[in-house]
Design a protein around this nucleic acid. Structure first.
Lengths: 226, 226
DNA sequence: GCGTTGCTTCGGTTACGACCGAAGTATGAA
DNA sequence: TTCATACTTCGGTCGTAACCGAAGCAACGC
């Protein structure tokens, strides 16, 4: 019963709408300036500055000074992961008023989750990879030999990924789909490859837009039923 | 930038110390009455009642009426998981004043994380199982054939576990150790087996106490270096 | 019936913190 | 140097929500 205050300190940080907006805006992994974040949060710059120093003090964000700008980013993928998990909880909360605006639809279709693909496309990707036996495991993902071959051909340097500290495959719960999508180093590499190939591009915010042709290519590779 | 308020609604719930204490008290998976929770949170019963109705409305807790008592419990293991993840974040926050009281020491040694073993013993368990090749995978855990045989002999009905919806193995980040311990259906089954065998017993709250002999048995089985 | 226990609802107080205007600091441009 | 931009700090206002006392219900025992 003593660990309550520990949760509360983080919870209180996430509990303010302005701060939550700031964190959401940073969920795509990019670094933004104080003024950009102020606008995203819908508060004045002074207020945003105050929030940012709190978030920074709590090590949820890291700041980087560049000229007269200060860029803030999430201090790691784990922060993003917890945020997505919280959104999952929020869902069952019923707090999720099903606002089906066009922006929302685009977000549900494909978006960036810190540095990898999420939304319908993200879930399709993982499902497809599983059905084609590139990735095994139900909740705990493992790259198969077939997958190793396939992704190598796809242009991903797996040897490099496997050297890093970051896990290669990671199941990340998708808040809009209530299913898992592929995170980890491999997930990040795939997204970056998709963008390189011109199959999709990053719009403002977290939205990822596929080109008509790109979507076809993507599906022919990853979605068995297509 | 629209998803901010969604996070904020949950965050605000977790952000109040009294509510955080209530949730912490329920982290052991048991159901407690309003008065017990009020005491755990350090507030009066009326206040606790208010908090509980909010937490219930958000589906974080479920209530169950029994006579003139109302029992509250976490509405699922996923809630506990998010809470543990939050504690992990809180750690990097530096909000973790290293209060090394005796109660705290016991908690760090062995405790219940919803329904499985956490703390030093929990981490030992997973490490040992990995070294003995009962469980494979770094971040993503898979039960090996050796493990299947071993845990079967240990008295666990794996076939039943594998039928359920719940993942068998799950890596759960341990907030005190900053390493993973074993959750999922298997984690729960192992803890329950440990208690059955009388190797350990559950104390008040989340603390798990091993008997001298029980600890020996546990270590001889799971801790290679012992 | 009566009293007791466990919990909820109501009302009023209080405190914390989000917010913005204004002033202050630092970096860069002219 | 002077001005402009990007940000931080200060001070004061205002709302929200946590809190408790008191009263109201509901379930059980006698």
């Amino acid at each position: 019963m003593k660990e309550g205050p520990v949760i509360a300190s983080v919870g209180a940080l996430l509990g303010d709408p302005a701060r939550a907006n700031i964190l959401s805006a940073l969920m795509d992994g990019r670094a933004l300036t104080v003024s950009e974040l102020a606008e995203a949060a819908g508060v004045t710059i002074q207020t945003a500055s105050g929030h940012l120093s709190k978030l920074g003090a709590a090590n949820l964000l890291t700041a980087e000074k560049q000229g007269r700008h200060r860029y803030f980013r999430l201090s790691g993928p784990d922060v993003a992961q917890v945020l997505e998990a919280l959104m999952g909880l929020a869902q069952r909360t019923g707090a999720t008023r099903v606002r089906t605006g066009p922006r929302n639809a685009a977000l549900r279709a494909a978006r960036v989750c810190y540095d990898h693909l999420a939304g319908e496309r993200g879930v399709e990707l993982l499902n497809g990879a599983r059905q084609r036996d590139y990735i095994a495991g139900d909740e705990q993902l493992v790259l198969t030999d077939r997958g190793r071959a396939f992704f190598g051909e796809f242009g991903i340097d797996l040897a490099r990924l496997e050297k890093g500290r970051r896990p290669v495959c990671r199941a990340c719960l998708d808040w809009s789909e209530r299913r898992s999508h592929l995170g980890g180093a491999l997930g990040a590499a795939i997204l970056s490859r998709l963008l390189d190939k011109g199959w999709a591009r990053r719009d403002s915010g977290r939205v990822v837009t596929f080109t008509g042709q790109g979507l076809g290519e993507f599906r022919s590779i990853f979605v068995p039923s297509a």
